[in-house]
Amino acid sequence: MKKLLLPLFMLSLLVPEVFAQTPEERGLEIVTEADRRDTGFGDSQAGMVMILRNRAGDESTRELRVSTLEMSGDGDRSLTIFDHPADVSGTAFLSYTHALDADDQWLYLPALKRVKRITSKNKSGPFMGSEFAFEDLTSPEIQKYRYKYLRNEKLDGRNTYVIERYPAYENSGYTRLVTWLDQERYQPLKVEFYDRKDALLKTLMLDNYKQYLDRYWRANRMTMVNHQTDKSTELTWSDYRFKTGLTERDFDQSSLMRAR
């Protein structure tokens, strides 16, 4: 029965709308479906290599590991451990995201053995000096944005929905984000970020998608280009693991302090 229902449901998405639907409703509908498809992963762990490049082509690298815990009824929790550069090795970052409330964030400084709380006003600030802002890397809860469906478009041979998002949370660095969402996988292939003056600030390209547990798609490469500074950052994910048995206990202050 289930096997029959799912293709039927997906088919219904392709059928022209019978009832008039505003672009806002359509946008929310698509994003809700994307969220539904990504629900239930439980927890995940992955490694990340970040390559930062400036205008002159000088590079510096960051290596980190990220664990994420899916929370029902709240935003995801994540623990990020820094491995490289060596002077920040052992630093760890704990984040409890919330749909609309300010996120709770703590940083662990291994040299002092000290946990510091950070205000989450720095959403627009760069993550580790990269072109990714903190808000680009937190879990995309539905309520964090308002949506508007713009059009269908082919991108690199794939059919996409083009959807505009408007941050509904405070202190965002953006007025809007335009997302090219793959129609088959419901995953973003490209995102354009517009700054507070509505000028194009950055473009994110997501590729090397891999599917895990026969269900969850993850881009294993993300390239962010800042058009205003000509700097870019390339994120390469590796070793994605899902349902590894992590619990809330792995995302408390005590686990932050012994993160390695």
């Binding site: 762990q45 451990i81 060596a86 090795s89 547990l213 070793d239 994605y240 693991r241 390695r260």
Partner: peptide, 25 residues
């Protein structure tokens, strides 16, 4: 937890045990 890469590589993942071999910093 095996993941199918786009290039057909199958990455089988060991249990999470970071730095089980020891780490000098």
């Amino acid at each position: 937890h095996a993941a199918v890469d786009d290039d057909g590589d199958t990455a089988s993942h060991p249990a999470p045990a970071p730095h089980s071999t020891g780490k000098l910093t």
